[in-house]
Design a protein around this nucleic acid. Structure first.
Lengths: 133, 133
DNA sequence: TATTGACTTAGAGTGAACTTCAAGGTTTAT
DNA sequence: ATAAACCTTGAAGTTCACTCTAAGTCAATA
């Protein structure tokens, strides 16, 4: 069992964010101490792991919340969950391919500017020489 | 020369967004007709191309705006521009690698759920058989 | 037992990137 | 010449994902 502080350190999410995620239905059924403090189980940590993966691949929190709710409902939602993950996976792949294309253009531009910079520096050096002649 | 409508179609950005980008300093010096309508030149289109690449690889608009301002200032800002693009490029590569890792985990989870679904469907079929027996 | 520090809640505030609105001016086709 | 379609501006509104505040509660320690 982990305190919210420990979970924050392990996941990199702030304690604020962890409470916010709970409020938004991304995590559910977190146990409490008598005093009302959150106690995260290993299953909660696992769930958080998947949540972070989905979030970091660009799934909106609403959709993650939907996924978590389906999980809670049990095995008869397996088909829908498989569909969701499959569709998300395809989206991510497409986005990454597009990202790569855009990155290639950025790289091209970077090379172009690097060349231009070299020419500029050469011109500057020449001018400096002329001045000192 | 292109009207804002044509540029919108070519770039996929809404006319609203194009005006917004101008206001935020992402595009500058767009010509106008006597009536005050925007007229985008081929150079404007080129600039928009790079802007979209930077945006689509996750550079914040503020930073793009900074880059555009440096470009406007001339060749003595080449070094800084090269540095900016270089740093951005490294960031994108790192993010893409992380994204790939997260995607791998999603794929793994998808396979896991697909297996679980198969087992569930087999169990259901069996139960249906028993009922009809 | 008193104080320090971490925890609780509801709710307000933030920043990024749009998006919509209101009120009006311009172009073009009939 | 007049309607329809398109353009202009400034400003307000929206969505997402946090992030912070205030006022109070709980736990450990000197």
């Amino acid at each position: 069992m982990y305190s919210i502080q420990e979970v924050s350190k392990k996941t990199g999410l702030s304690t604020h964010t962890l409470r916010y995620y709970e409020k938004e239905g991304l995590i559910s059924g977190v146990e409490r101490t008598q005093g009302g403090f959150r106690q995260y189980s290993d299953e909660d940590m696992d769930a958080l792991g998947l949540i972070c993966c989905l979030k970091n691949t660009g799934m909106p929190l609403q959709e993650i919340s939907r996924f978590v709710e389906l999980t809670r409902q049990g095995d008869h939602t397996l088909q829908e969950r498989v569909d969701m993950l499959g569709a998300h996976r395809e989206n991510v792949i497409t986005r990454m391919e597009e990202m790569q294309k855009h990155l290639d253009k950025v790289t091209w531009k970077l090379n172009f500017f690097t060349q231009k910079l070299k020419a500029y520096q050469a011109r500057e050096a020449e001018e400096s020489l002329e001045k000192n002649a």
